[in-house]
Simulated scan of single mutants.
Amino acid sequence: MHEPALSPESNDSFNDQIRIVLVETSHSGNIGAVARAMKNMGLGNLWLVNPASFPDETSYARSAGASDVLDRAHVVSSLDEAVADCVMVMGTSARGRKVPWPVIPPPDAAATAVQQAESGKVALVFGRENHGLSNEELQRCHYHIHIPSNPDYSSLNLAMAVQVICYELRMFYLKSLEEGESRPYLQPMVAPGDEGWDSPPATAGEVEGFFGHFEQTLVDVNFHRRDNPRHLIARMRRLFQRARMDQMEVNILRGVLSSIQKAAGIQGSKEQSAGNAQDSQNKGQE
């Protein structure tokens, strides 16, 4: 049988305040999959209401390394017991009800949960695999959370549903770091100049040098005629400008052009030779 991975005590206040509650889970493997989904998103406070089987080897096997979440799980006999000390309770629901209830999407649910967690404990409740939460259970919730899945195939696996909500909680938490001194994990890196990129952006002069070399190479291999240019060069400029090249990329491309000219038996200009020399220097630094 599994040995506990760590002490049941945790100093993570965010983790302690927000709990995931599973009601009458019939397959213990789903409990393990939920634990994995929670740990992926930095959560670990799991409550189980009258599970069919827990703990067992299947749940630990499906947790794939999130055994600490299972070690700390609270097993109770009723939903009332699981949420008794909570100031906010939200339950997932995939279908409409005869009596309208406040319904919010996952991003709003995450924002509400984090905000309410500042004043007390918050429960996010998930129902049974085959028919979710009962009307009576849903009436114990302040809000219903609706995941806007495909209406023609809306049923989500339990762990998938938990993953969606935990992901939104994670995103809201990370965005909140922007208000503090910590560097947010959501900082994008998509182009030269962004933090973490490995080469500076190419300057306008470097790009123009490449365009001149590129056009000359097309002329040298009889692909382009300057006296009948049409829109070829303009379109190629648009392509490369859209790419927002860095200095290393420009130098690599100029090295390719020089190799094409050499293979065609054409001597490049002094400007092209200078570009080749720079490219050789960069290759030596790689």
Rank of each mutant, 00 (worst) to 15 (best):
M38Q: 09
H146P: 10
R72E: 01
D85M: 02
R226A: 13
E206Q: 15
A64P: 02
I165Y: 07
A277S: 13
Q116L: 05
Q17E: 12
I31C: 03
V125P: 01
G44D: 00
C166E: 01
A111C: 11
S78G: 00
Y173Q: 11
I165E: 09
S93R: 12
L124D: 03
D68L: 01
S273E: 12
Y167R: 11
Q116S: 09
T217I: 06
M88T: 12
R170C: 05
N40C: 05
A117Y: 04
Y173S: 09
D68H: 01
E181H: 05
W47V: 14
S182V: 13
C166G: 13
L169G: 05
H224W: 12
D194E: 10
Y167K: 10
K39Q: 12
V21L: 03
D71M: 00
N157L: 09
Y167E: 08
Q247V: 11
D56K: 01
K270N: 11
T92Q: 06
S259K: 14
D85P: 05
T25Q: 01
P51W: 00
L186I: 15
E195W: 12
R72F: 00
S93A: 13
F172G: 11
D12L: 10
E195R: 13
I147E: 03
P8Y: 00
I104P: 06
R237F: 04
S269F: 07
R140K: 14
D16N: 14
E178Q: 12
H231P: 00
F210C: 02
N251M: 14
N50M: 13
V34F: 02
A110D: 10
V99I: 15
A204P: 05
L218Q: 07
V83T: 14
R36L: 08
Q261M: 09
R128Q: 09
H131L: 10
G196N: 09
V49K: 03
G268L: 03
M189C: 14
K175Y: 09
A64H: 02
E118T: 08
G91H: 02
N30P: 05
G120C: 08
V221I: 15
G120A: 03
N30S: 12
P184S: 15
S77G: 14
V122M: 03
G120E: 05
M189G: 09
N228C: 07
K262C: 07
I20S: 08
L43K: 01
D246S: 12
W101G: 06
H224K: 04
R237I: 03
R19N: 03
W197N: 02
R36I: 08
E181K: 14
I260L: 05
S182E: 15
R225Y: 10
G180H: 03
F54A: 13
Y60S: 04
A191E: 15
S26W: 07
R72Q: 01
W197C: 11
D198N: 14
E168Y: 04
G284M: 12
N276P: 00
I145Q: 09
I252A: 07
V75G: 08
E206A: 11
